[in-house]
Simulated scan of single mutants.
Amino acid sequence: MSFAVERGKTLGIVGESGSGKSVSTQTLLGLTAGALIDGEALFEGQDLLAMSDAQLRRVRGKEIAMIFQDPLSSLHPLYKVGKQIAEMIRQHEPDVNKAQARKRAVELLGMVGIPEPDQRVDDYPHQFSGGMRQRAMIAMALSLNPKLIVADEPTTALDATVQAQILDLMLRLQREFDTALIMITHDLGVIADLADDVLVMYGGKPVEHAERRSLYYRPHHPYTKGLLESIPGSTGAKERLKPIPGQPPSLINLPSGCAFHPRCEYVMDRCVPEEPQLTPVNDNDGFPDLGHTSACWLPHEAAGLSADAERIRQEAVAAGRSGDTTIVDAGEAQ
C-alpha cells in the first residue's frame, strides 16, 4: 500500500475490523515485532522500516506520536497520569528537570480540557473517566509537539457526546500545532468533518483512495459504497440500514483475485482469478483523476457505480454469482 500525509493535513484510514488499518500504522513505529515486512516508510527522507530499535525510540513520541484505542490499557495503572506525561517529556528532553516536566504536564492537561489540572495531575488513571483518559493520552501525544500523530480509533469506546468533544479537540489542536494526523476508524461518519483525504482498506490492502468530497459524493469501489450506505441516514431517514453481507476475510487465507468478490453485488468473472490494482477514476470531464484511485474492475467513470456497473450487477444476480448465493458458496468452500 502507498499513502502520504503532509503537515497540517489529515488522512483518514477506514475499514472494518480486521482490514489491516492498525497493523499498517503500527508497523511504521516498529510495533509489529516478528512480522514479515517489506517496502519502505519514508519520514522526512528516512526509512522508518530500516531504523534500529534505538533510532526508533528517538522517533517514537518526539517525532511521531500514537493515540491508542483503549487509554486504560495504554496508561500504566500504578503511576499517576501527570508522572507518565512528565516521564515521556524527560525521556526525550534530558535537560528538563522534574519540576519543569510536571509544570508542562499541568499545562497540557489544561490544554486538552481536564478540569483543575493542577490537582488532577496527581490522579491515577482509574480516577479519570473514559473521556478524560483519552484527553490525557492526547496531552501525552502533544507533549513534544510531534510532526505526525497516529490516532488509532481514539473514540470507539466513548459515548456520542464525548466522541464529538474529542474529535473537535483533536481538530483544534492539530490546527494549532500544525501537526500531520492519521485517523484510523471503522466509521466513515467519524472522519466526515476531519479528514482531507481518505484511504479505504479491505483484506489488508487499500481498495480506494480519494479526497474526502470525491469519496463521499463519487465513491467507486463497491466496498466504499457499502460503508457509506451503512451510515445511519445515508439511505433516507425512514429506510433501514443497508449492511454489507458476509464477513471480512481472514488475512492469512484471502480469497483469490479481488478479496471483496465473495461479498460484492457487482462481481464479474474476472474478479475471481485477477486482483485489480489501484488505478485512477475518471473525473467529471472524463479524464483520469490521479487523486482518486480505486482497485476494482468496474468502469472507472466519474459517476462511481455507473449504469454499466448496474447492468453488471443485474447480470450477476441473474447468473447466481452475487448477493447471498455468493456468500453461501464462499462459506461452503471454506
Rank of each mutant, 00 (worst) to 15 (best):
G203N: 08
Y79H: 13
M137L: 15
R218L: 13
M140D: 09
R172N: 12
D118M: 00
T235H: 07
A333E: 15
Y79M: 10
P117M: 00
R311T: 11
L290H: 14
M111L: 15
G15T: 02
T161K: 08
E275M: 13
N97E: 01
R270D: 09
T325D: 13
K147Y: 06
K103T: 06
E332F: 12
S143F: 01
P248H: 01
G204L: 03
A180E: 01
E63Q: 14
E176C: 09
G304C: 07
V81G: 13
V198P: 11
F68E: 06
L36Y: 12
S22M: 07
R102I: 05
D285K: 12
D122V: 09
R57P: 06
I312D: 06
E315P: 12
L188R: 08
P115Y: 02
L305S: 12
D289S: 00
M111C: 09
L36P: 09
L215S: 13
V281W: 08
Q26A: 04
L169W: 00
M170T: 05
Q163S: 06
L181F: 09
A259W: 06
E87T: 12
V200P: 02
V272E: 15
I114L: 11
L72V: 11
D197W: 11
A86V: 00
L305I: 15
D159Y: 08
E315G: 07
C258P: 12
Q55K: 09
L254I: 08
L194C: 01
H92L: 14
A295V: 02
R58Y: 02
H261D: 10
A86M: 01
D329Q: 15
E107K: 13
R104C: 04
D283G: 06
H292M: 09
R102F: 03
M88I: 12
Q174H: 01
A54V: 06
D95C: 08
R212Q: 14
G12Q: 07
R104N: 03
H261R: 03
F287Q: 15
V112D: 13
N97D: 15
P146M: 08
Q119Y: 08
L36G: 03
E310N: 09
P222H: 11
D285H: 12
P299C: 05
L148W: 01
A237Y: 03
T325F: 09
V267A: 10
